[in-house]
Design a protein around this nucleic acid. Structure first.
Length: 465
RNA sequence: GGUCCCUUCGUCUAUCGGUUAGGACACAUGGUUUUCAUCCAUGAAAGAGGGGUUCGAUUCCCCUAGGGACCGCCA
């Protein structure tokens, strides 16, 4: 049995979006499940639109979510000579021909097709014409001599057998009139030269597959297995595009979605394994299979991503969470000062409890991170004369404590509840606002213990003087 | 318009001819709770429509409807 090889082949003409990431993920998981290799091929033959910036973003994105490709990136533009060679071979063997139609001629045909409301398909004018009839002033393109009769069946690992009439495939161009190869040629040659055993790609490539199969057959190459996975749709039900908001990984990482959570979400989008929802990295490799891939497109659901992230926040190792949090703050907020870092780390247990994202944890911990309390305008109004007395009484008892503990704090608060003839809220709320600036937040004992004695006194004093 | 694909709760999905159609997210209600959350419990919520095949169809076949993809000298 040949060693399984898959690839992800994006073109660096725009930022990689989440649909592409899922395609990469499926390819990667399949190859790893089969103990095979996974490669990254950058299809940068569109010189006009390809940019290094996008190539780097693609590589960075894959790395971020934990998809490692084997070997170096395969840069398609460095293989153009090979593609041209194959085109010439096809020409020599009678599987391709030179087409001398002018741009105007083609445009005219397309226009007419549109008017008649019939699908445009190149009329194969030069398929059987003699070279001698060629106009001198036109540089020809090379077209593939597509099959006219019969049907072709694509045995798709996801979609089953898909059959089309060969005459619906036109004589597509394989070499432009500037001598450069087009996508279907390049992709076929590369897949063959890279020894791909499985081509897993978006549904939108299905028609291309029929063209590529013909190239393979003409070259007498062994066909890889194909799997066309359904596309991810926007909430409106359309194909996800680069223009859609929140579609690049950066859009997710900047709001504090963690790579493992997004990986897990993407895995379950269009793929399932019984009722299982949560997959560790190892589990996703072990359980991944083609049978689990659904046939219908699925919609992106932000609340699902958020809840998946929440699950990871609450369940991963706290040291790991802390590392991810500090990295996140450094990247998107501001680097947490080292003395605050310790406090945050100790407080993670309760800070994370009310968080769906790393950004939420950051916000929950802001009262620790910031030196100055940032008061909520409405909440601070709740600190009236009565509240000031509470704070003042608490502070004078708090001063006497050497090392604050939950038990001691509890007894102080309980005492105050009695002496002020109030309830817990009557004590807790003023303290919380004085210490954090808001009436919402972690439990009051957690707040006090996380800030430390000195800081608590400083903040309380500021509110009673 | 042509070709191809798809169709189970709002969303992601389970079911591989016989189930009270299950789970998860979201939602609603109740409970726990010092606030906000968490957590727990409960609830509402689905087989697009019509024909077949079959003792029996969500499941197999056909038609209709709806949705999607593709239709570049882009990839």
């Amino acid at each position: 049995m040949l060693k399984v090889a898959t690839r992800f082949a994006p073109s660096p003409t725009g930022p990689l979006h989440i649909g592409g990431v899922r395609t990469a993920l499926f390819n990667w998981l399949y190859s790893k499940n089969q103990k095979g290799n996974f490669y990254l091929r950058i299809e940068d033959t569109d010189k006009e639109r390809s940019k290094d910036e996008y190539k780097n973003q693609i590589i960075k994105s894959l790395k971020w979510i934990g998809i490692n490709y084997d070997g170096e990136e395969y840069i398609q533009s460095t293989k153009i000579e090979d593609h041209i060679k194959v085109a010439n071979q096809l020409l020599k063997n009678g599987y391709a021909y030179k087409c001398y139609c002018s741009n105007e001629e083609i445009e005219e045909q397309k226009k007419r097709a549109r008017q008649k409301k019939i699908p445009y398909i190149y009329d194969r004018k030069w398929r059987d014409k003699k070279e001698a009839d060629a106009p001198k002033d036109i540089r020809p393109v090379i077209r593939f001599k597509s099959k006219i009769d019969g049907t072709t069946i694509l045995k798709d690992m996801v979609q089953g057998n898909v059959e089309i009439d060969n005459n619906t495939i036109e004589d597509f161009i394989i070499l432009r009139n500037d001598g450069t190869p087009t996508y279907n040629l390049s992709a076929s040659v590369d897949d063959h030269q890279m020894n791909m055993t499985h081509v897993i790609r978006g549904d939108d490539h299905k028609i291309n597959t029929f063209k590529q199969i013909q190239i393979y057959e003409a070259m007498k190459w062994k066909l890889p297995a194909f799997a066309h996975i359904p596309l991810i749709h926007t909430i409106e039900g359309k194909k996800l595009s680069k223009r859609d908001k929140a579609s690049t990984l950066d859009d997710y990482s900047k709001i504090g979605i963690m790579p493992d959570a997004l990986r897990n979400y993407l895995l379950r989008l269009g793929w399932s394994y019984k009722d299982k929802e949560i997959f560790t990295l190892d589990e996703s490799i072990n359980f991944f299979n083609m049978e689990g891939i659904g046939k219908s497109p699925s919609k992106l659901d932000m609340s699902r991503i958020l809840s998946m992230n929440e699950h990871y926040i609450k369940n991963i190792d706290e040291n790991d969470l802390f590392i991810q949090l500090t990295e996140y703050c450094k990247l998107y907020k501001s680097e947490i000062k080292s003395d605050k870092k310790e406090k945050i780390k100790k407080s993670l247990t309760f800070l994370k409890n009310k968080a769906k994202t790393l950004e939420d944890i950051f916000n929950n911990g802001l009262y620790i991170i910031r030196d100055e309390v940032n008061f909520n305008k409405d909440d601070v109004k709740l600190i009236d004369e009565k509240a000031r007395n509470v704070i003042s009484d608490f502070n004078s008892q708090f001063e006497k404590i050497d090392i604050p503990s939950r038990e001691i704090l509890e007894s102080i608060v309980n005492g105050l509840i009695k002496s002020h003839s109030t309830n817990f809220k009557g004590i807790g709320q003023p303290l919380r606002i004085a210490l954090t600036g808001s009436k919402f937040g972690p439990g009051i004992y957690d707040i006090i213990l996380s800030l430390g004695k000195e800081e608590v006194q400083k903040r309380l004093s500021a509110k009673i003087t």
